[in-house]
Structures are given as structure tokens and as C-alpha cells.
Design a protein around this nucleic acid. Sequence first.
RNA 1: UGGGGUAUCGCCAAGUGGUAAGGCAACUGGUUUUGGUCCAGUCACUCGGGGGUUCGAAUCCCUCUACCCCAUCCA
Length: 750
Amino acid sequence: MEYKKDFLHAIVEEDLKSGKYQEIITRFPPEPNGFPHIGHAKSIYINFGLARDYNGRCNLRMDDTNPTTEDTKYVEALKDAVKWLGFEWDGDVRYTSNYFQKLYEYALQLIKMGKAYVDSVSEEEMRELRGTVTEAGKRSQYANRSVEENLDLFERMKNGEFQDGKHVLRAKIDMAAANMKMRDPLLYRIKNVHHHRTGDTWCIYPMYDFAHCLSDYIEGVTHSICTLEFENNRDIYDWVIDTLGLEPPRPYQHEFARLAINYTVMSKRKLLELVEGNHVSGWDDPRLPTIAGLRRRGYTRESILNFCESVGVAKANSVVDVAQLEFCIRDDLNKKAPRVMCVIDPLKVTIENYEGSEELEASCYPADVAKEDSRKLPFSKEIYIERDDFEENPPKGYFRLTPDQPVRLKHAYIITCKEIIKDANGKIIEIRAEYHPDSKSGQDTSGIKVKSAIQWVEASSAKRVELRLYERLYKNEQPQGLEDLNPDSLHVIKNALIEPAVIEQKPDERFQFERQGYFYADPIDYTDANPVFNKIVSLKDSWKKKEQKQPASKPKQKVKPVQVDGEVAPMSQEEQALFDRYTSKLGLNSEVANTIARDADLASFYSEALAVANSPITLANIVANEVARELKEQGAIKLSAKQVAQLVAMIDDATISSKIAKEVFEQMVKTAKDPKQIVEEQGLVQISDPAVIEPIIDEVIAKNPDNIAKYKAGNTKLSGFFVGQVLKATGGKANPKIVNKLVAEKLKSI
RNA sequence: UGGGGUAUCGCCAAGUGGUAAGGCAACUGGUUUUGGUCCAGUCACUCGGGGGUUCGAAUCCCUCUACCCCAUCCA
């Protein structure tokens, strides 16, 4: 694959390469209990994207195990979202509820294995029995029911003989598990409710932890990708599949960090609160991060997809700057949207020396956009310009119309201000101007230099339009609740004026209103009598920024948080004794001594090896680093002390370098061979002869003229690069100390 | 507090013992009939802190710190 790989792509690629799977199957498994938002888009993009990238398949599965919160209207919204983003699920839409019968049979199997039981304690009691994060829980008195009794009870649960909450089916795992999720998790609960798909067929419904892994298995899913908060659930996922002894290929769960964006909220609860409290106009309110909202706002699928790609996939909880999303839509629309002129806050301009009217041909795209189209622009002596584009007392650097500064009317003529007309309150209500007949756009011979070209509309032909200008929904970067809502997130402009072609010819749905931003014809409220446009996003505006910055340019100082150094647990008496012996008798440095003394396994290994080796320091270094790693990763040390002692001897007599020693150590662990044998078999003996090394250095230098130049230019860090190259060329066998010295000399001499 | 995770620029994010990628944002300058776009350039001697191992550490070891998740009959 050409592009940059995230960790999920890396896992899939590895699994395919190793032959673990012939083909990958992923799935997007939403619960149909809310409207999809841009966080779902990320998940959709990951799951469908993975399938696309590796010629696999991706299912769309409604995870409908909780009939009390779910509804078919959400199912439709979810399907729409996937389709709109341009993805196709494999086969039909799947439903966990389709597997209820199979799931039930698996549960029976677990009961028969003695791995599941019907519990009948109250909810409250169950909570108490579960224990806390620091205390183990206790099994309820019902846990030792016989298989027959469990089977009977479960059957009756299914038959609807009990009220909700009377009994549950639980897995029999471990009430003392450190992972709370493993303390006999619930598998089934009784819910005498109507399910939106299975109707009244079932009175018991499976829990997520039981249904999800098995649904994945049933569908042949290979990579079950979910968000970080399910990390603890992975143990149950594996337990269910392992305990049932399901044949491979089986699915494995992998977790990534869900998407968060600043100045907005993504949780179902908070979104619901906004909609139900009428703080927004509905699920498709253009200020919402819902797919429906984004669509109504005018975001394109390409922009959303690019956004998902650009934020990447990782495991760190992070909050993406909304500016990144805005960049994506601007970037997309810049290439696509026709440019038209709209005046939001009109100021009348009368061109005194212009008589009659004409139609100007105006291109819809600037020269740098590879599209071509044009429209007719009526022109006469009465026009409107943006109020902002005239200043009687302009600030420094103002490029637009002023009493002394002419300006070009985009696609038309240059005008000069002649007179300012104000009302009784001193508000400017009209500009009287003159145009320069020889300055017509495209055939300008006037020689007048203007600093900018502004948008305008001709008075008699302009159409009135409604504009909905959106700002961020929240005023806080990381909003908590309703109190953080931005009271000015919506501005409705009833009387904006737009050039007639936009309304009469409807050349597109999305436009760039020149110099202002991208707008979208509202798909619902737009009518010919009352055209409505939603602002998708503003154009970048470096002038506004410059203006605003002047007063508020305070140098922000970076406050580094104080790093508290916690207390180190004191050593036990025995540890202290060992530590003292290591440092005073054996000459170990305190850090290495500390590492070994505090770890009983390392200490015993060390003392064992010490008996057969007589190089306490080198040995200690290996124990405190390599052996410690092995112990950490494997949970046990499989090497004999003698083998390690042998390795130490080879380091001490310079047979091998410490770099090679690490490599040998890893092989010793893997193959259980003696280090001597490994070194012999692979010819790993260190090369220390300068006569052998020098030509290799010369070769490396000759091969890297660019880096030599950089080195000469002062990048002295590059010496490490050359050492590395030489070492690589010798398969790591060159004596690094000597290489280092020789490289330094060579580099100095050139 | 037990367990599970995560920390690399203002915001995302590569990097798996050998030159700290890239994008967004920001800032210069150039082009421009959009203060847009585009182009050129600047922006981490350092990777949460402190030690250790190594010729060489963001990467290996020890240790400390901060943040997130888990004690729903939700998913």
C-alpha cells in the first residue's frame, strides 16, 4: 500500500501476510438508538476503508439487542449515512436480532458446560456482590444451581414466565477478577417488550458482551474494530469465543480512539438534549456535527472523507481542531464551487456618469480553477456594494473604496467615490460615484491602479435571498453543557441581494459568494419565492485577522506544568541488603543495583549467574535490561544462568560488541541455543581491524554526498547517521567504538 | 485505590536502536480583478519528568507524574 499506514492497517496487513486470514471482513455495528454523527463517519471510514484497501468486505450490522431504546427510524438514518459517504455494505443489512436463535443456542451450550448460570438476586444485591475495584466480589447463592435447574429456568425465562429483572443469565468466570467486566458478566436479561424487528417473539435479550462477539463470529468477521472504552470488554469477547471452542478463523477485537472535535459535542445524550430542548432546529440543524446536520449545512462527502483521512487513527484520546474540518470543506469547494456575487449588507451606490444598462459576461471560476463556465451580469447606474467595502476614515492598509481610493467592481468597471450621503443620524445611506468608461474588465486601458476588486449587484435585477449564517454552536472549546452554548450561533439575514443568474438558472447547489464564503441552497426551506442559503464556511480572511489582532496582541507565555516527583516506595530490609552489597561489594551503579534488588526474580537470576561468571557489572547490566525485558514480556526467564555468563564473557573479551550481544540474547531466548554456538553459526565475531572498516566508511561517504554536504554545512548530528550506515553495511559486526572514531576522523578531514 | 489504556510542536499525527515525516493553525515574502487559491520560505538541538544501559535512545530498562476507561439487567 502506497499511503501511510495507521496501526489498524498494519495489523490487517500482517494478518493477511501471515496467512491468518485469506480475506478480511470488517463491520460497522451501530446501535440504532440515535442519529449518526461525524464520529460514526470516522468509524465508517475506518471499517469500510479497511475492507476497500485490502479487497475485503464490510458488513453493516444494526446492533439491536436493547429494544427499549432502539427504533427503525434510526436504522434508516444509519443506512443513509453509509450510503451518502459512498460506501456499500456487503450483502443485506445485518441485524444482531437475526441471530437471536443462534445466540440462544450458544447460551444453552454454555449452561451445559457449567459456564453459565441463572442468577436471581436483585439488581441492588448484585451490585453489592460485585465488589469494588479494590475488593473482590462474591458469587451469589444461586451460582451453584445444577445444569438442569439452569436449563429449566433459562427455558422459562425465554417463555416469558417471569417478570423483568426476576432472573438473569450470567457467565461463570471469576468474581475476583481484577477486570471488573469479568466478574460473572450478564449474558441475558428478561425484557417483556416489543422489539422493532422480532416483535414479541422474545422475552429475553442478549447483552452486548455476549451478542457482539458471536455476531462477529457468525458473520465471519476477522477484525472487530471498536472504540477505546471497550478495551476492558475484550477479555469477555475472547472468553466467550474460547470457552465455546469456536473454530478459527475467529475475529479479534481492536480498539481506536473515538473522534472528538472542539467547540462541539458528540455524545448521544448531549445531542439528544439539544434537539429535545429545542436549542437547535432538529437532528439536521446545520450547527450539529450529525451527518444530517453536516449535509444540510452543505458539507460534501469528499470533505468528510478527507477529514477522516487527515485526522488519522490512533489510540490517544485527542480533540481535533474544528479548523481542520473547515480546511477540508474549503479545500474541496475551492475546486468545485462556482463563484457568484452576493451582497449581505447592501449600501447603495449611484454611478452618476453611467446611463442605460448592459450585460457583462463573467466567468464563474478564477483562472486557477480548472473549470469553465460563465454567466451574464446586468449592470446599470444603480448598484449595491457591501457596507464593509466602504470606509470614510479607513484604517491603515485598507484596500477597498474610500473617498480617495478607487476600487474595481469585480467583472465590471473601476469607480471613484464622489459624495457620501448620510441620514439624520449620520449613517451612510448612499455613495455617489463615477465610473471610468475605459476600465471595463478585460479591456482596461485606464491605467488606474486599484488595490482590490469588490462584489456588487445591480439594483433592479438583484434578487432578495435569505441567508443563514452559522457560527460555532458552543462558545467553549470543550463544552460541558447547555451553559456553554453560544447565544449567537445563528444569524438570519432576510434581505441579502444576489445576482439574478443564481436564482434564475440555478447553476449549482453550492456557491462561493465571492470574498465571503461558501454557501449551500437549503435543501428543505429553499423556494423560488424565498430562496434560502446556508453558509457552509467562511473564506479565510487575513484582513479581518490583522484588524482584530492589533489591540489584542499580547505575548502569550507558555506555562509549563510543574512536574511533581512522587515518592519512591522504600525497600524492604532484604532488598536494602542486596542493594548495599551490589553497590559496595560488586561496584554496580545505584540504578542498576536498585532495579535488580527490588525484583526478586531478577535478584535470584543475578545471584545464580554470578556464581558462574566473574564480571558482576556487565552481567548486572544485562540482567537489569535484557533479562528484565524478557521477564516483563514473557513473564518468565527461560535462559540458564550459565548461558548468560557465557554471553557476558564474550562481551568482556570483546569477541562481540554490545550491539551484537543484544541480538544474540534475543536469539538465545528464542532458540535456547548457547551464545557461542549462535556467534559461530552466524559469524558474528566483531570486526575491529581499521584496515577492514576504512574502505567501508569510504564507500558510505561516497554513496551519500547529500549528507556529506549537510554535515559540512554544520549538521554534525549526521555523524551518527554515517556510523549507522557503516554498521549496517557490516551486518552490525563492526566494532562501533572503532567505527565511531574512524568516522569522526574521516569527517573531520573532508 | 485494583485492573486496562495513553503521553512526540498551539491542534492532529508518523516514527519500533542510527538525519524528529506529513497535515491543520500561525508567521514571512511572491503571484492574483476574491485580503481567496496557488507558489517559496519560517515554525520540535528534542519526544510527560528524572535516572540507567549503549559508540549512539522518542525507541531498551528502572522510576515518578498527568490524563482517559472499568464497579448499567446500556452499547
